[in-house]
Nucleic acid binder design. Sequence first.
RNA 1: CGGGAUGUAGCGCAGCUUGGCUAGCGCGCUUGCCUUGGGAGCAAGAGGCCGGGGGUUCGAAUCCCUCCAUCCCGACCA
Length: 570
Amino acid sequence: MRVSQLLIPTLREVPAEAEVVSHQLLVRAGFIRKTAAGVYTYLPLALRVLKKIEKIVREEMARQGGQEILMPIIQPAELWQESSRWDVYGPELFRLKDRHGRDFCLGPTHEEIITALVRGEVSSYKQLPLLLFQIQNKYRDERRPRFGLMRGREFIMKDLYSFDMDEEGLHTSYQKMYEAYSRVYDRCGLKYRVVEADSGAIGGSDTHEFMVLAASGEATVVYCSSSNCDYAANVERANALYDQESSREEPESKREVYTPSQTTIKDVAVFLGEGREKTIKTLIYKTEDGLVAALVRGDREVNEVKLYNTLGCLQLELADAATIQDVTGAQVGYAGPVGLDMRIVADPEVNNMVNAIAGANKTGYHLVNVNPGRDFKVDTLTDIRMVQAGEPCPRCGSALDEAQGIEVGQIFKLGDKYSRALGAVYLDDKGQEQYIIMGCYGIGVTRTMAASVEQNHDQQGIIWPASIAPFQVVVIPVSTKDEAQVKMAEEIYNKLLQAGVEALIDDRPERAGVKFKDADLVGYPLRITVGSKGVKSGQAEVTERQTGETVMVPQQDIIYKVCDMLEKDV
RNA sequence: CGGGAUGUAGCGCAGCUUGGCUAGCGCGCUUGCCUUGGGAGCAAGAGGCCGGGGGUUCGAAUCCCUCCAUCCCGACCA
């Protein structure tokens, strides 16, 4: 195609509203435009990238026996009421009414639809296992869309659902998808890590997330630094290891100390000349079942996902200042477990502390020499803290490293949650009715595109991996006034097309600098430059976007050279 | 939903404090000349409901009220 005829509206300046680099570059390089908050239009270049990713996804799903279908975006409320998610899903569900007042929603996911389909069409074990997938727009009315394509309200997702007779079959399907996902991200040229994840309220047994490693990632993952161990987990999930030994210190008698205006762990520790690990952090949470105090060592952070799972509650949020004042009798910053009248959940580390420092529930005072058991009672003792880099791997004991990741895919074992709710059963070989065992597996297609940009860019612009680049090569005649250059560029361009290379020719009557800048910004893997010197010697330059390396290649060899260089990356 | 900020030409911004004549600048766009190896130069142009509504005033981009939109932080995220 010709750049002069393509809609590639590049911008010189960074759009003011774009914060993350993928958003900035995708807008600047003419890939996307915003239609509303969290809703984007994909321009020709973006659509080509998305189609490439989708093609890879389709091939890998098919390789594992997945069959493609297409389900509706608009879903009737009845199905969601059957699974009781109409009420549970909350305000994130886009809801609408038709002209008759009937309730519908825009699908954020398709478990209900597909389970209803399968319950109608599958009745025998002979029809299982079944792997069905689609690539479809999804809708989630995010409270706060942000980061461009990373967290949109409308996005493209591949979702596959597996239907098996039993857990063993589910495990096989799960393994297939694990394999398929690994191949998808490998082929997309992304550096990623598979991590154990929290299954959340869905309550499944196994779940893994596929994380593209990038500094801007919203998720934190920990992974084992040992080359012999492949442990990796989302910090929300990572289990903490605990020393069994408690301190040898002799418990001393508790006393109150005056700590004016020392309302943070750090301040109190410095003020009293102790380390933060000598303090107990007391956070008061509000749940639908009342208030709960969560205790962790002062140098640790509470892991709200673990706490949520421990409490089994539906709502969990930090109590507001007024509530804290009311229940502790002190301002925020002086809460402590001693004499606190509410359920107390403590991390095991807290239980091992001797002569600890804690808030006195009295403004301006802390207690020293606080000892768990003696001075306060813990109702629930369980892992509720965030694991940090440097801690021992729960599997092998080596130190853990930490990284930021963008969640681009996840795989879940659902079990019979939906088949039970919606009545999807089959008859086994003994004629017994059984619930179908399900799994679900998602890939964020638009997010994968953004994640690739986050991971592959430089000061000049995007650097697409060849496998998902919108075009693989751009041919640039330095001057469109020089007929010899134009002729040679056209010849090379046509030969590339004949060879099946996705090539563009930048035939705009722009100065060379403009065309180079645009080529770098858009991020074509290869650029072929035809200049006056090259024309004389019958050579053109081939420049690799990734490395910036340029080689002079005789015209007749260019096709081979290009194919050779692209092979390497494909 | 709480906190903060911003809405002025396609994009990036100034003007607003202290109201005043025709609303500016850079980039981009159009036309012509010129130029062609890293976002050239000269000249002439087009392009604005100053986010919407209401108010104050002789007069509002500017002051007041209100609504809307967008962005950031937090909360939230099967």
